[in-house]
Design a protein around this nucleic acid. Structure first.
Lengths: 344, 344
DNA sequence: ATTAGCACTCAGGAGGTTAGAGTGCTAACA
DNA sequence: TGTTAGCACTCTAACCTCCTGAGTGCTAAT
């Protein structure tokens, strides 16, 4: 799509703009070391690039800035994907492998370190546990009419929920039921719990419990309480570092969105595996029409587990950040894997 | 300290400024219904009030704004404490008593509703569980060398932590130990766990376990893992609504602080019971020198449990907000109490 | 005591000027 | 034919200056 000449200039402009956030003039480009033509020539090339649609002007005599189409082209065709900062990856690796005590810490720390390293806002959608299996169910009675149900997975993840027991039933019924469930359900992948319960156990249970229905539904509710995928966000303050967001309206809509977990989860829940870059208006969500979002999936075993996202200005340091996200997603995958081995 | 005349004018000015965020002129005051003197007279009174130190000018010919001392006086001596909006309290009450499933939900929802009702940022420091008692300890082995320790309180609160078991020890030792602990520790208030463990049980345990030390310290770590008081923050976006914070530097320092849980916890951890108002520079924390912070404690039984905070501009609607906070703290106390009864 | 009146102050907006960074185009050049 | 110097042109941003209006404090009269 672009000639070599155009490409060199285009890259110079976009890199300059990413660094400075200021429109780039022909003079500045012609003075770069690797460029040996005069500013007049650059101007001609710039006009071509504008014609093509990858550059824009902010006003008729201003320098050029990349258009969204320009960023798209840059991301798809210009970036060399393999430039990784080894020291940064080392930092991450050490962080994720030393002193991790809890499963979720891995993800939490990743979010923090990612926002630190990039000056953007990081969002990580916690593991979705497709491969996680039930280890143990437990009911701890609190009183005659209340109890806590606890569910432990083979990854050491613990879910719990308190509930009331209706007058008609007593705790020993429930405990009996839980014992049976424990025998049969230990080792079952979490995602299959619901169907297993519905298909195989309803009948079985009816033999043991006076009135299965209510207790059963209570428990089912507890067990399948749709655990919202946990969300870890780092560096929300970083939007304030970007000059393009020094604007109260934009900030308000950004921070409003950040308080709405559901919306963010929807944003990150991607069908596609691997790295995905969404630039400016490519985002369907109104609040981030001025942002770019890069997402990467991390995995564990065969199934996708979660998503890492990085939210910054369209003028993002794609060149640096995409490999970093790539690397981080691998590090998380590794860390999860190691953690899993350590505890099983 | 103030004469009646001065007081009437002072209140009019401060109320006006709280509503408008604009310096208030003598004219505007003299036109208020309840004020029957001319603007010239108001000017004289204003001069007196400035002399006293409760008003300031932003420049020599500007209207007056309240000084921090002025707000202090307003809060301490001017506000009538009993004006409560009944409808708002009703909203809160319904919210906190219907559909609460988890202990922490009470606090979480309070934070949200508080920021909604006030347009400020609410911060609630979760229950500290002084009266909470241990219900049950549990160890769920995950593998030969790992397990999850789970701790359930009588309020249905669940703490958990995964840990590795060193080669030298085996899980059955630990389980034996946990059984003993369970017998002896059930019903012990959480705050006493540490001392109980140290004083009474170390010796006892040595009789049962081969090598008590390591296992013991592992468990102790798990049990006393200083559960950071949970923090619920609502309406962080609301700072952006206040014209005095349309300033990137202030916003950055505010949002930086909001990402530092430790600092916020320190901010809210107050010695004093009841309502406390800290205005502007009375705050020791640099980042909120332009803010006012109102805190109220909510309680459960005899001991303090937690703190509600509301963070807004010094120009806060104290008159409205202080009773609201007062009421909310009572509602939380009630809701916790009801929840406790329901589940015990 | 209160107030009308007046001189004074200051912020903020409107308008005008200028500097400079940029452009596009043309004509000359290698 | 691609490159460049040169030039006219454009637009922003910074900087004046001026002016208005909202405010003050003070004084003298009620």
């Amino acid at each position: 799509m672009l000639t070599d000449r155009q490409l060199v200039v285009f890259r110079a402009i976009i890199d300059d703009f990413i660094a400075s956030a200021q429109p780039v003039g022909s003079r500045a480009i012609s003075e770069k070391e690797n460029i040996k033509v005069s500013s007049a020539t650059i101007r001609n090339i710039m006009a071509e690039l504008e014609e093509i649609g990858v550059l824009e002007k902010t006003h008729s005599s201003s320098g050029r800035i990349p258009s969204e189409k320009g960023y798209r082209y840059y991301v798809d065709h210009v970036i060399q994907p393999s430039i990784i900062q080894n020291d940064e990856v080392d930092v991450i690796r050490h962080l994720l492998q030393d002193g991790i005590v809890e499963f979720e810490q891995i993800v939490q720390m990743s979010a923090e370190v990612l926002s630190e390293l990039t000056s953007y806002t990081s969002i990580i959608l916690g593991p979705q546990m497709f491969e996680t299996k039930l280890k143990q169910l437990q009911i701890v009675p609190l009183s005659k009419h209340s109890a806590v149900a606890i569910l432990v997975t083979n990854t050491g993840h613990v879910e719990h929920r308190s509930f009331t027991i209706p007058e008609a039933y007593n705790i020993s019924d429930l405990e009996k039921l839980v014992n049976i469930l424990n025998d049969r359900l230990a080792g079952v992948p979490m995602v299959q719990l619901s169907t297993k319960l519905d298909n195989e156990f309803l009948l079985l249970l009816q033999q043991h419990i006076r009135d299965v229905d209510a207790s059963f539904y209570y428990l089912k509710e507890v067990l399948l309480y749709d655990q919202p995928s946990k969300l870890y966000i780092g560096g929300k303050k970083n939007v304030l570092r970007q000059p393009e967001f020094h604007d109260v309206k934009k900030l308000y809509s950004f921070y409003s969105m950040m308080e709405n977990e559901q919306e963010i989860i929807r944003l990150l829940t991607s069908e596609k595996e691997g790295i995905k870059v969404t630039i400016g208006n490519e985002n369907k969500m109104e609040a981030i029409k001025d942002f770019s979002l890069i997402t990467a999936t991390y995995s564990f075993g065969h199934d996708d587990l979660g998503t890492i996202g990085l939210l910054g200005p369209t003028r993002m340091e794609y060149q640096k950040v995409i490999p970093l996200l790539q690397a981080l997603s691998e590090e998380i995958t590794d860390a999860l894997y190691m953690f899993h081995n350590k505890y099983s």
